[in-house]
Design a protein around this nucleic acid. Structure first.
Lengths: 202, 202
DNA sequence: CAGGGTATCATACAGTCGTACGAGAGAGCA
DNA sequence: TGCTCTCTCGTACGACTGTATGATACCCTG
């Protein structure tokens, strides 16, 4: 049996270690990650962690890739929504850190966004994640355009760029804000989407 | 001579060390910061760094506070702009990482946004910076509202929340994007501002 | 039941970390 | 001149770092 050459899905112990790394980053921050702290978190010997991830750098990259896989998987599991604008808003809302699970993912994503600018090995995972995000939004906006719902002054490209930035900014807010701010996050996201595409009132 | 009890401006060697820390973070990332790497960057002995910043934690906090001071100072030096909406856009544009200096500041701000969620000592500096940002925008929107330029559906509060998030999201883009993306950043920011307040055409 | 690949573990080593500490230089004042 | 306060420096120590390596245990195939 042969895996796909690129971006095969992480499974088994390797995924467990990546998940443990994610937990460490989300709980204590980027620079607490070491072969030993992750091994303790995962309940494994340090050598086992090293067997699956040759270096600390590998470990960080693995955590970020795994985090991306988790997000994409969760997005794919969303209940179907016919209306294109509502579906877009639904998808973007799913990215906001509104519960513990998504907060963990949000912290990782922001950490990746930050680290990508100084750590070459993380640049590619970040850019791939961002490209996926923008492209998904762009596809939705193309469908909206075909339905005549794209508002004046926007193209699918400019709208995707705008909404991706807004969502990322709101994610930053969310990982540092108390739960009482959640309605404001949702409102700002809805305002942004409504600015780019026409939304039904209900 | 007695300094103000709170938030006095950093000067002298202490400011030099904080600036060196900023350079290290911007160039090599958060977790390269140590008493020794900063001392080397500043051209000082490790002990001198320790005299001014008792611990590594102090050093990180100092760099972030200093970065905030630099941003606020630069905003205050902007040329006067009468029109309230244009002034708002001017101020927000100044926050985008469109040149080397602002890119350094942007990297620090994003690193702070990320680290604040897991490092208690950085939570306060981050929240203060964010509050300053939102409040400055809010003041501008209040003036716009008085001039009848605030668009339907927005309050100064909701508009400030929205534009702060958008600007932060675009800052993330900017620190990781090539210069060729700058026009897109400016366009998205202008689109966002134009959504909240009426802008003259010129 | 051999044998070999795969996975797990424990340990080892050199280097860096955070931090504490004391020695000394220089300025200001009595 | 001494005395004190502020600042700078260099070093020391234990803990932890990244990474390499060798010893086991397990499973599959023959």
């Amino acid at each position: 049996m042969q895996d796909a050459p690129q971006s095969h899905f992480m499974t088994g112990v390797k995924a467990d270690i990546a998940d443990a790394t994610i937990r460490v980053i989300a709980r204590a921050g980027f620079d607490v990650v070491s072969v030993r702290t992750v091994a303790k978190e995962a309940g494994l010997a340090p050598g086992t962690v090293q067997y699956h991830f040759r270096s600390r750098e590998d470990l960080l990259v693995g955590a970020m890739v795994r985090n991306g896989q988790r997000i994409v998987t969760r997005l794919a599991e969303l209940p179907p929504e016919e209306h294109v604008a509502k579906r877009l808003l639904q998808g973007l809302t799913e990215l906001l850190p509104l519960d513990e699970r998504r907060k963990e993912e949000g912290i990782l994503w922001v950490a990746l966004s930050s680290a990508a600018s100084t750590r070459p090995s993380l640049t590619t995972p970040y850019l791939e994640g961002l490209a996926f995000m923008r492209d998904t939004i762009r596809q939705a906006l193309i469908r909206a355009q075909q339905a005549g719902a794209l508002r004046d002054g926007w193209t699918p490209e400019s709208g995707a760029f705008f909404l991706a930035a807004l969502t990322n900014g709101l994610t930053i807010d969310g990982i540092n804000a108390p739960e009482s701010d959640h309605p404001r996050l949702l409102q700002a996201l809805a305002d942004g989407v409504r600015n780019v595409v026409n939304m039904p009132d209900d």
